[in-house]
Write a protein that binds this DNA or RNA. Sequence first.
DNA 1: AGTGCAACTTAGAACATGTACT
DNA 2: AGTACATGTTCTAAGTTGCACT
Length: 586
Amino acid sequence: MNHQRTHADASYTCGSDCRGETVCHVQQLARFRWEEERYTDGVKWKFLEHKGPVFAPPYEPLPSNVKFYYDGKPMKLSPEAEEVATFFAKMLDHEYTTKDIFRKNFFKDWRKEMTSEEKSTITDLKKCNFSEMSEYFKAQSEARKAMTKEQKQKIKEENERLLQEYGFCIMDNHKERIANFRIEPPGLFRGRGDHPKMGMLKRRIRPQDIIINCSKDSKYPTPPPGTKWKEVRHDNKVTWLVSWTENIQGSIKYIMLNPSSRIKGEKDWQKYETARRLKKCVDRLRAQYREDWKSKEMRIRQRAVALYFIDKLALRAGNEKEEGETADTVGCCSLRVEHLKLHPESEGQEFVVEFDFLGKDSIRYYNRVPVEKRVFKNLQLFMENKEPDDDLFDRLNTSILNKHLQELMDGLTAKVFRTYNASITLQQQLKELTNADDNIPAKILSYNRANRAVAILCNHQRAPPKTFEKSMQNLQTKIDAKKDQLSDAKRELKSAKADAKFSFLESKRKAVQRIEEQLMKLEVQATDREENKQIALGTSKLNYLDPRISVAWCKKWGVPIEKIYNKTQREKFAWAIDMADEDYEF
DNA sequence: AGTGCAACTTAGAACATGTACT
DNA sequence: AGTACATGTTCTAAGTTGCACT
């Protein structure tokens, strides 16, 4: 067993490594205190060894029969210019390539890769014809689909080999899965929403761009022949193995461990423990910010109203963003006057605030909420004499807010409210919606509904799947067929009743029962799918809901955990599956 | 207080795989 | 065996937070 583990880890990993061996637990606990002392002060590991990243495959020039045309005439491009052209060609069917900003950014960056001759010839993107290249890539992807089983198998094996070689590292005597060991390949940047940088060239990352982080006493990863790393460092205060600087925003990208790893699992667990501590003092905090609505200091009123929104509506903190560098999106502290409408009275309700803004990933947040009179009056005050594009909370930012929160509770930040409210909502909804005598599919529907309540709170939306209508229809067809089957079975049962043979009758009864169950299952599935049309459950499940609530619910109602969490999720939440019993309370 | 950067979590879309049907 | 679509996985962008520096 690993001896370099902390308590949190010991209490879950031990279960899978040496379940049932009491001795092991005792040793784990005994070693934990000793370990904890060694892991204070931000030390994340003692030993780290890995093989470094896998680079994107080199560019393969197009066959000579696949041509690029400029102004109707074929033109052979230099390899550098050709590669960038293929990035555009591959996206030709995408809406992106019709957008002005995308085209402008692409063309500017493409020209940088051209030879001076190319540059002087190719001056207008509209005169560029990429269609042969595009057709070629489509044909290639068709060919890939049409490969024989053996060919596909071979590729799968190669991927597996790469995973085995580069996909794992050793951290403190344990082999851990790496999340993203492949370096992001070059291509055209695709931002979300109206991103001013969409279409820019994301350049190829080379070994000399790479910083390796590993322990001094490990076997260092070797750079590809003839190349060097930018740097090899030994920083055990951070968790990443590899980093490089990306050229679009100039930000740093990292290779880190998989969510199933000890280091991520422990952090996740800690996050939920912080949220549970908030649960204990949230009443006090709420009373406090309600008091602060009355403060004579503007900054305090703004802080208190913002906090109310963060708590009630689960808004994100909302950092300031550099204008022109990213899409124009906001969170709570960065809300502008134009994002709210105040209705003293609307549809029979008093003091309604209408929110309409783009949040993270340019997902629209639209909500009409009745608020308390005092909040409403404050908002009127904050908006007085301001232009639409002025900040609503001009005396507040995330830094001020988080400093305040830190004073209220150790470890409290704006995002803890989202975690807390998501988890507590799940717990309440599960309590409310689960019927003891429902069968398992119906219970799962209840679970999904509880999950859905959270997703709606957190505004986790998705574009309705392209095939949504069709798939609903398909399901309805199945349901109709099942209904026919059921009435047939019922008729047979009836006539069987005339028959004296008990076993025969019994088999018909069973058949009816079985079909009824199948029908019910289909109907539940249809309801679930319909309700889920524009809602994405995954994000809240993965990032906001204390998994121990779900584990406890499964145990309590005899629902197999596999019905709630797939394999990956079970790996990520291994700690919780091991830790929580049926009366766990968040 | 303000700024910039580093490190980390959170996010939806795109892509790959599995499965249920014909 | 082939197809269609549901489900799972990968990808990487876009957030939050804390800290150093001024």
